[in-house]
Design a binder for these strands. Structure first.
Length: 202
DNA sequence: TAGTAACA
DNA sequence: AGAC
């Protein structure tokens, strides 16, 4: 793992923390997660489908529907979420800086046209616990703002193998993904991007 | 509005 | 960036 650490608007960035073999191993593990807990398109509380597909691993999964955003013990189908893969836990241990283990491993799949609007991660109970994010596959334009939606934003490209940590001032910063750069990675045979986010929820 | 479209 |  490359130890280089950068900072972008308060977000810690570890470019290329995962080398190609590590990325491939993680994708294989995530494929097993998606077999146990199939990806689904969440719906916002106003009935609009999000463009990303998602599933989770761990004690809790993140769920969105007309009842709002929350963490649930089970996949919408009723099955328990599979365990968080060891490869993913190793990244948390390397960069989170906390002793607690993550309780939720949210896996988002971005097709070439998928995006994620500016939002805050505020469905957790302890904001002293960081959010760790792993990028796999095509490059993605990552936008980071401040604590209010109207705060100015700035963008940077995230590449396959990069890891971000949202902690401290940036823990509740607005952030999102504007677009992908299709064809920039050969990691995923069908293209697109996987993003893995790790959180302590309770 | 974890979304979108129109418009500047 | 703001409005819906």
């Amino acid at each position: 793992m490359t130890p280089e650490k950068l900072e972008f608007r308060g977000v810690a960035l570890y470019p290329g923390l995962l080398d190609r073999p590590a990325q491939e191993a993680m994708v294989a593990a995530l494929r097993r997660v998606a077999e146990a807990a199939p990806m689904f398109h969440p719906e916002s509380r106003f009935g609009k489908r999000m463009s990303v597909k998602m599933t989770s691993a761990g004690a809790f999964g993140w769920v969105s529907d007309r009842r709002g955003y929350r963490y649930e013990r089970r996949h919408p189908s009723g099955v328990a979420w599979p365990p968080i893969p060891a490869e993913v836990l190793a990244v948390w241990q390397a960069v989170s800086g906390v002793e607690r283990a993550p309780e939720c491993c949210l896996v988002n799949y971005y097709s070439e046209t998928a995006r994620m609007g500016l939002h805050q991660d505020i469905d957790e109970s302890d904001f002293a616990m960081p959010v760790v994010s792993i990028s796999l596959g095509d490059d993605a334009l990552f936008r980071v703002g401040g604590l209010e939606r109207s705060d100015p934003t700035a963008s940077t490209w995230l590449r396959s193998g990069d890891v971000c940590v949202l902690a401290g001032e940036a823990r509740r910063a607005f952030h999102g993904i504007d677009r992908l750069k299709p064809g920039t990675s050969t990691l995923l045979p069908q293209g697109g991007r996987l993003n893995v986010t790790l959180r302590v929820v309770t």
